[in-house]
Design a protein around this nucleic acid. Structure first.
Length: 481
RNA sequence: CGGGGUGUGGCUCAGAUGGUAGAGUGCUGCGUUCGGGACGCAGAGGUCGUGGGUUCGAGUCCCGCCACCCCGACCA
């Protein structure tokens, strides 16, 4: 037996680490808090990038690239921003053997360096909007790290847009959080709750932060993407004004939005099981593995396997054959389940005689017989499509089963250990802080989705779960990663 | 930064009262296997984190240092 994965119900976080390492998604590096993203993990990121990049471009954005280094004075320009980020920055003090006149921060996020450029590019409303995205790495000197979920250096994309009116920027903020929501649901097969953050959970320097929150299999919440309405904060900090259509002078309205390699962690924790990774087909770079059972006329079996792979590939289904004789079929079954290949096809002399093959889907482990021949690609595609849908439904059902409405604080404290809790909140930061201190649960999101709001009657007034004061609405509490 | 722990083949670990390093797994070769992580045989692989001390002799005892992990405060 190779690397054994700890069972989820035994030790969830150990399960996660075991899975990441044995599926060869990532490895620890020799640099504290930094990970190596291995080919299996990077392939997932590439699929995510491809889908997101297309969605960004479809919504009118273009890609660009800004420097890794940010002068200290830039970071300091926006008061909340420096307060939020300075303590967790890596700072370069020397270059070329000389001490630098001004320290350079390794970007923790790029608002400041980007706005220093935008100020040069924007004079008139005719220069707006600017809709730029960049794919980059950033560094945040976190105290504690976890593979994919929180590492010192991580990969992400950050969109930074500039607009002439607050209406337009708010529209952009919502457009992008909805792009993330669509991506999470349709590609990651991961249900999310879209909504606003409370003031204390907002991005440093934002007027309003919108997010998508997902539930992991241990009932904890994971913030999977954010979209910020920055108001005129950064434009004011960088003195970025423009002439409006009616010849007034105004500061530019800004947004920023991003998702990171953390999404890979989310994907793992949302779907995978004790055997290993479970990947939604749309994010699998290899969707089908064909395992020939090599006995009898080996050459004939291999030939059949190769022909099947060719027909699947011709139909646009990425398939490959593992015909190596080093490992037994049983070993291969286990290995590709560990790696999360969505569909496994077994084909041996017995099957060829009957004109069939055996297909096993990764999420349910169900096996079915498929006819060999020209109908095969369609049959496989049906399995892949069903899997993509079923994984979403399963995750949604799980979230619903682990969401409770609490009407007393006692009930709240018990429920928040297991999942999401919907409860009335009086709207004060004090209450939020007290609850966090006492239970470690935070307000994850003030939902903005009609379906979710109706389902849990989020806007019904009531009394605060903690203070007993009048509460205008309910919010979603959970412990979070 | 506080509290706890660990450093021994690639990995996981064992080495009792000090006597000159071992297992499982992985790796290499050959053969038999192959429908749920097969087996036999033969092999390669270790300055025991690091610096000092005690001793005839240190993986083991003493002191310093370093690194990493876990729990808390920070966070996508």
């Amino acid at each position: 037996m190779a690397d054994k994965i700890t069972a989820r119900n035994e030790d969830y976080s150990q399960w996660y680490i075991d899975l990441v390492r044995s599926a060869k998604l990532a490895d620890y590096s020799d640099v504290r808090g930094c990970m190596v993203i291995r080919p299996n993990g990077y392939a997932i990121w590439e699929k995510m990038q491809a889908a997101l990049d297309r969605m960004f471009k479809e919504t009118g954005h273009v890609n660009a690239y800004f420097p890794l280094f940010i002068p200290e004075s830039f970071i300091a320009k926006e008061a909340e921003h420096i307060e939020g980020f300075a303590p967790e920055c890596a700072v370069v003090t020397h270059g070329g053997g000389e001490e630098l006149a001004e320290k350079l921060y390794v970007r923790p996020t790029s608002e400041t360096i980007i706005w220093s450029s935008y100020k040069k590019w924007i004079q008139s409303y005719r220069d707006l909007p600017i809709l730029i995205n960049q794919w980059a790495n950033v560094v945040r000197w976190e105290m504690r790290t976890r593979l994919f979920l929180r590492t010192t250096e991580f990969l992400w994309q950050e969109g930074h847009t500039a607009h002439a009116t607050p209406e337009e920027s708010q529209e952009e903020v919502m457009r992008m959080i909805n792009v993330y929501r669509t991506f999470a649901e349709e590609y990651m097969a991961m249900p999310v709750i879209m909504g606003r953050k409370t003031d204390s959970e907002k991005f440093a320097g934002a007027e309003e932060t919108y997010c998508i929150e997902a539930m992991m299999q241990d009932g904890k919440a994971l913030q999977a993407g954010t979209s910020h309405n920055l108001g005129q904060n950064f434009a004011k900090a960088f003195d970025c004004q423009f002439q409006t259509k009616d010849s007034r002078l105004d500061y530019v309205w800004a947004t920023s939005w991003g998702v990171s390699t953390r999404l890979i962690g989310a994907l793992i924790m949302a779907h995978s099981d004790d055997r290993g990774l479970v990947l939604p087909p749309k994010l699998a770079s290899r969707q089908v593995v064909i395992i020939p059972i090599l006995r009898g006329d080996k050459a004939a079996v291999l030939e059949q396997a190769d022909a099947m792979a060719a027909s699947l590939k011709a139909a646009g289904i990425p398939a490959f054959v593992d015909g190596s004789e080093q490992n037994s079929p049983g070993w291969k079954f286990a290995e590709y389940e560990l790696q999360g290949i969505p569909v496994r096809i077994e084909v041996g002399p017995r099957d060829i005689e009957k004109g069939i093959c055996i297909a096993a889907r990764r999420d349910t482990l169900e096996k079915s017989e498929l006819q060999l021949g020209e109908t095969l690609p369609r049959a496989v595609q049906e399995i892949l499509d069903a899997m993509q849908k079923d994984m979403y439904q399963k995750a949604l059902l799980f979230r619903e089963e682990n969401t409770v409405e609490a009407s007393s604080y006692e009930e709240f404290k018990a429920a928040v250990e297991k999942g999401f809790v919907i409860a009335h909140w009086d709207g004060t930061a004090e209450t939020e802080e007290k609850i966090k201190e006492e239970t470690k649960a935070t307000i994850r999101v003030l939902p903005e989705e009609d379906g979710y709001i109706e389902r849990y009657r989020m806007n019904d007034p009531g009394t605060c779960i903690y203070s007993g004061n009048p509460a205008a609405q309910k919010v979603v509490f959970a412990k979070a990663y």
